[in-house]
Each structure stands twice: as C-alpha cells, then as structure tokens.
Amino acid sequence: MPTREETQAQWLAQEAAVRAKLTAPGVSTLEQLKQCSGIEFLQRILDGELPPPPIAQTLDFTLIEAEPGRIVFQGTPGMQHYNPIGSVHGGYFCTLLDSALGCAVQSTLPRGSGYTTLELKVNLIRALTDKTGPVRAIGKVIQVGGRVGVAEAEIVDADGKIYAHGTTTCLVFPLP
C-alpha cells in the first residue's frame, strides 16, 4: 500500500500532466456542447481541445479523470481559500462537490442533452486547511433518466480520509 507521500506525489504528477494539456479557461459554445455526448465533451476538455471552465482557475482545481458515471476533480486548498475563522471556506467544498456531481451526471448524457443542478446537499465532515495537501472530489452517478439525474460525491485526501459528502438532483433536458 503506498504511503500518503507517495499517493500525493502520484496525484500531483497526474494533475501536472493534465494541466499541461489544458487550454486557457473559457466557455464552450452551445454548438460545441451539442456536437458531443457528455463524456466526449468532458474528454475534449481533458485533451485540451475545449477550454476548462473559468471557475476551475478561480479556485485552482481541475478535472483529472472522466469516465461514464464517474468523475474526479482535484485541488489543493490554500490560504486563498480561507474564511475569516481560519479554515477553508465551505464554498470551496461545495464548488468541488457540485463540479464532480454535475459532471458525473453529464458524463452519462447522450449527444444533444444538457443538465442543470436542481438540488445540492453537502455535509462538511472535517476542516480542510493549507496543510491538507491535494484533495479529490470523486463523483458517481446513482441514476440518470430522461429528465432527472442523481449523483453522490466525496472529497477525500491521499489517505482516503473523507472531508465532505454531497448529493445532487439534476434536471436533464434537450439542448436548444
């Protein structure tokens, strides 16, 4: 079993390899979105063919892995994410989880379909700090139908310790 330091080093190397392929942040067009299934769209971001969303740059996290029904985002909390009481702001947790949850649903959608978050439930289990190191938000689909998608996600560190858990309900719809 790898040590925490070995896992962190592996995670950071994987993140560096992904970031090396990414283009400048931006927003894909509706036409670009409509041309792909959900997983193809996410893979095109990972491959550097489409821009990663600006929120990922703002909070310094990135998509690391994408497969149908499972998504992984990674970030390293720092002082720039702190709230006034001396730990990482809850919005950081929520944004990482919302990204993993929504993209997990998106990864199962056929070409021409979109989604939006209807409900987000987050449980913060323990504090993140600038000493935590890289964390991953791992999202998994529970069920996606023609109109509704449901997913769950956890934020974990290199030891597998859980920092937060979340669930979402998404509305699935045909793109205009």
Rank of each mutant, 00 (worst) to 15 (best):
M1N: 13
M1R: 11
P2G: 12
P2E: 14
T3W: 07
T3M: 08
T7P: 09
A9G: 10
Q10H: 12
W11T: 13
L12W: 06
L12I: 09
A13L: 15
A13P: 11
E15G: 11
A16W: 09
V18Q: 09
V18R: 09
R19V: 10
A20G: 11
K21N: 12
K21S: 13
T23D: 14
G26H: 04
S28I: 03
L30C: 08
L30T: 07
E31P: 06
Q35A: 15
Q35H: 10
C36N: 15
S37N: 07
S37P: 06
G38S: 06
E40V: 01
R44A: 14
R44T: 08
I45Q: 03
P52Y: 03
I55V: 13
L59M: 08
D60Y: 08
F61A: 02
F61R: 00
E65Q: 15
E65A: 12
E65G: 10
E67Y: 08
E67T: 12
P68C: 08
G69C: 05
G69H: 09
R70H: 11
I71E: 01
Q74R: 14
G75K: 00
M79G: 12
P84S: 02
S87I: 00
G90T: 01
G91M: 05
Y92Q: 01
F93A: 00
S99Q: 06
S99V: 06
L101K: 02
L101S: 00
C103V: 07
C103T: 12
V105M: 03
V105T: 02
Q106Y: 11
Q106C: 10
S107D: 04
T108K: 09
T108M: 10
R111T: 14
G112R: 03
G112A: 05
G114M: 04
T116S: 09
L118Y: 13
L118N: 12
E119Q: 15
L120E: 04
N123K: 10
N123C: 05
L124F: 15
I125R: 13
R126S: 14
A127T: 07
T129H: 02
T129D: 02
G133Y: 04
G133T: 08
G133P: 03
V135H: 05
R136W: 10
R136K: 15
R136I: 13
R136F: 12
R136P: 07
A137F: 08
A137W: 04
K140W: 13
K140T: 15
I142V: 14
I142G: 09
V144Q: 00
R147D: 07
V148E: 15
G149R: 02
G149L: 00
G149M: 01
A153R: 01
A153D: 01
V156D: 03
A158C: 14
D159Y: 10
G160A: 09
Y163I: 00
H165P: 07
T167N: 09
T169M: 05
L171V: 10
V172Q: 01
L175Y: 01
L175W: 05
L175S: 00
P176D: 07
